[in-house]
């Protein structure tokens, strides 16, 4: 599964192995959709034909296995690998839907501070040698669990909901991350109808403050609850609008020149009338 790339230095030198990208998915605030985003983007990326390892760094509160429907296949976890009880290969669990996607589950019965930051960094480094993408599902908070999840990553996706507290926490996390991770933004759980009525912060409101490159916007989607119940990420369904949105974000991560997905608003009668007469938006 290695990506080999010919060296440009000259014919005589060794081929250079291109390292995969290690992207941490973080937010500061809990419950905004980090795990859901990680599972869906991992699924969407794998469907594009690249190899992806998902790492659940939320030690003590493991969730990613549930969202992916893999909970019954987990035999070993992150700490088993870090503490060298099993090899990485023994701990990686292949996804049900794609053999390009694997999961390294978190330990459930352990504490976040049992993770050794340097070992975590080394683990992510070895995953990057073998997978084109390593997505790390970060725990909430900005303490040791966050620092461990971030160690070894070289990029960040920050997930934010259109709420005061979530934006504030993302602002803090982005400050902690600094420039090295080039954080990009996913706005999750937007309700376009509420935005239109002036009852929810809009994408522009949020990003006027955060001013981050926008990967895309995911709607507040009842289907996500259903798919989480079933353990089948919505990104498996490209035909569903939100499934397609995850694919668009995955495409943007991969560097495709597609616009950030936005949840559609149904236009009201008055607005239709307005645009019919050439009214400004």
């Amino acid at each position: 599964m290695h990506q080999l790339q010919p060296s440009f230095e000259g014919a005589a030198s060794e081929p250079v192995r291109r390292l995969g990208r290690a992207i941490v998915v973080t937010s500061g605030k809990g419950g905004v959709g980090k795990t859901t985003t990680t599972a869906n983007l991992g699924t969407a990326l794998a469907q594009r034909g690249v190899s992806v390892a998902l790492v659940d760094a939320d030690v003590g509160l493991r969730n990613l296995d549930i969202v992916l429907g893999l909970e019954n296949r987990i035999k070993h976890h992150l700490l088993d690998v870090l503490e060298e009880r099993v090899t990485l290969d023994e701990a990686l669990v292949p996804d049900k839907h794609s053999d390009r996607l694997v999961l390294l589950a978190a330990a459930q019965a352990r504490e976040k501070d049992e993770v050794d930051t340097e070992k975590m960094r080394a683990l992510i480094a070895s995953l990057r040698e073998r997978y084109e993408y390593v997505l790390i599902d970060c725990p909430a908070g900005i303490e040791l669990g966050f620092r461990n999840a971030v160690a070894g990553a070289d990029e960040a996706i920050v997930v934010c909901t259109p709420e005061v507290s979530a934006v504030r926490d993302v602002d803090r996390v982005v400050g902690l991350l600094g420039n090295r991770f080039r954080p990009q933004l996913v706005i999750n759980r937007l309700r376009p109808q509420l935005v239109k009525k002036g009852k929810m912060l809009s994408v522009d409101d949020v990003n006027a403050i955060l001013r981050l490159p926008l990967l895309g916007v995911i709607a507040d989607e009842p289907e996500i609850i259903v798919t989480t119940n079933k353990g089948e990420p919505l990104a498996l369904r490209k035909d569903a609008p939100t499934g397609a949105a995850y694919h668009a974000i995955a495409a943007r991560i991969a560097g495709d020149d597609v616009p950030p997905p936005m949840p559609a608003t149904k236009e009201s009668f008055l607005e239709r009338l307005g645009s019919m007469f050439g009214g400004k938006k």
């Binding site: 912060l201 409101d205 607005e271």
Partner: peptide, 22 residues
């Protein structure tokens, strides 16, 4: 006209409060 309607129906919501607090 549309702007007027927007003002009439739009800006009264709590998002303005949220923005200010933020």
């Amino acid at each position: 006209m549309i702007d007027f309607l927007k003002r009439l129906f739009g800006q009264t919501g709590s998002s303005a409060t949220a923005k200010e607090r933020l």
